[in-house]
């Protein structure tokens, strides 16, 4: 379970996260949506302990992550898998080394076991025979799938997806969302998905959180959002322009 309470973050004198409260129950997948610059990615990075908020608290499975050092974070981070917006593949490692990296860092497995696990996952994301390639030899969609594989290889109970379909064509986006859906159906993972792609997100999240200007504007299930009478919520959900 992730419990975010009263989180504030300032950049200069501008408030970029403005008093966010949110509880994400165990085993649910939450879609974090909203216009660009609403603070979605930043909120996710705060949850991962990568950015320190100015005030507030974030509890992950009962452990406070705000204000603790990287050493104490170790046990929390080994529970989290993260898919980064800009791929964040290590460009000095091959695909195989990249995907195996989390397992190697956790320790306790032989090289053989790691290789088997990597091969199994590469098949699952439909990228056979790419083990020895380097990230700069892959297309955008392939890189996203490699990042996905790296995020999930250690079977973390918590998954953060930061804009998993940014810059992809609709067909490739569909494939990525299918992978996310498959993960969710296995059950047991608590996850947050940040995206602009509402069409793709509709069917794969248990509930949605709409953010704007650093605040949570609305949160609820798909049915609740569709029933909402607030103009901003309806407009954003249907992708209509402001007038």
């Amino acid at each position: 379970m992730i419990r975010i309470s009263e989180v504030y973050k300032y950049r200069g004198h501008e408030c970029v996260i403005n008093g966010v409260n949110l509880v994400i129950p165990q085993g649910t997948q939450v879609g974090l949506i909203g216009p660009g610059g609403a603070g979605k990615s930043l909120l996710m990075k705060i949850c991962a302990g990568l950015v320190r908020p100015d005030s507030g608290s974030v509890l992950i499975d009962g452990t406070e992550v705000v204000g603790i050092g990287d050493v104490e974070m170790t046990s929390v981070r080994s529970k989290i898998g993260m898919l980064f917006q800009n791929y964040a593949l290590f460009d000095f490692m091959t695909v195989e080394e990249n995907i195996g990296f989390p397992l190697r860092q956790l320790g306790g497995r032989t090289e053989e076991e790691i290789r088997d696990e990597v091969n199994r996952l590469l098949l699952a994301v439909d990228l056979p025979n790419t083990q020895k390639l380097f990230p700069n030899e892959l297309s955008g969609g392939m890189k996203k799938r490699v990042t996905f594989a790296r995020a999930v290889i250690a079977n973390p109970p918590i998954l953060f997806y930061d804009d998993p379909t940014a810059g992809l064509d609709p067909v490739t986006s569909g494939k990525i969302f299918a992978l996310l859906e498959e993960r969710r159906e296995r059950g047991g993972t608590t996850s947050i998905v940040v995206s602009h792609d509402i069409l793709g997100m509709r069917d794969i999240c248990d509930s949605f959180v709409l953010m704007d200007h650093g605040r949570i504007v609305f949160s609820g299930t798909r049915e609740e959002i569709e029933a909402s009478t607030r103009p901003f919520v309806g407009q954003f959900w249907r992708g209509e322009a402001d007038d």
Binding site: K45, A48, L50, D70, M73, T74, R77, S78, I80, G81, M82, F84, Q85, N86, Y87, A88, L89, F90, D91, F101, P102, Q105, R150
Partner: peptide, 17 residues
């Protein structure tokens, strides 16, 4: 370049300081 492409964040998420 590793910082701006989030590779450094990815290292930290995998407990590699």
């Amino acid at each position: 370049s590793m910082v701006v492409t989030e590779q450094v964040d990815a290292l930290r998420m995998n407990n590699a300081e």
